[in-house]
Design a protein around this nucleic acid. Structure first.
Lengths: 117, 117
DNA sequence: ATTACATGCAATAAATGGGTTGCATGTACG
DNA sequence: CGTACATGCAACCCATTTATTGCATGTAAT
């Protein structure tokens, strides 16, 4: 039996990354992601401490990030810990690389068309 | 004289990518970027043709993309041609890679801390 | 049990975003 | 010149987002 690479995996449509980009397109949320990335799991009050916003504002931002699949939460005792979830961010990264590579090949086609009359 | 890699280049603060992500966080705009990427420079009416929206709606979306530095425009005769501008998108890509790598190293530190008592 | 802390829920209020319509302007072409 | 086409500008509408305040609930700790 030969080694099988999964051939059925689709290129993941660009649209799927829209909510991820929208979630990252806010300074507060991007900072939250960065903080969670280096600091591991943190509670809401901990995350609020670093900002000029209210706890509830941060809670809503975390909800947006969670809807985009960028963070996960788990209740521990009386507090709720949030942690970064890398899957969706990786997919967004692939989306950007997809666009960039299409651009590069378009440039290449143009260059060839110009150089060879 | 030794070969000098530019040491003074700053890591490009994460914030700078916020407007870029915000611009990409909309289905219409992400499609516009994709279209401009493969199709080269296009006029507003051309870009509008592929959508269910008004010309003015597309104009506004293009303005958002331009503010984020993702597209450039040039007036040619009576029409205005828009083309993709890869610089900001590349920077956004680097931002995501920065975050991902920080996450990876954080995981690595955690793994080491657990395995070595 | 009581006090302190962490969070959830709901009702706002203000601002932003996405979209439309109507009209004006500028350029090309017969 | 006059008509057709590409675009610009401004006012407006509606839905969503962002952030706040006030109060309720649940869990810890003394």
């Amino acid at each position: 039996m030969s080694l099988r690479i999964k051939r059925t995996s689709k290129p993941a449509p660009l649209e799927r990354s829209v909510p991820v980009f929208a979630a990252l397109g806010d300074e507060t949320r991007l900072k939250l992601i960065a903080v969670l990335c280096v600091g591991g799991a943190m509670s809401i009050t901990q995350l609020t401490a670093g900002t000029a916003l209210t706890r509830q504002a941060i809670t809503k931002h975390l909800a947006v990030l969670a809807d985009a699949g960028l963070v996960r939460d788990a209740k521990i005792g009386r507090e709720r810990l949030w942690e970064f979830e890398p899957n969706q961010l990786d997919e967004a990264r692939r989306s950007l690389e997809m666009i960039a590579s299409q651009w590069d090949s378009a440039l290449e086609r143009l260059r060839l068309a110009v150089e060879t009359p």
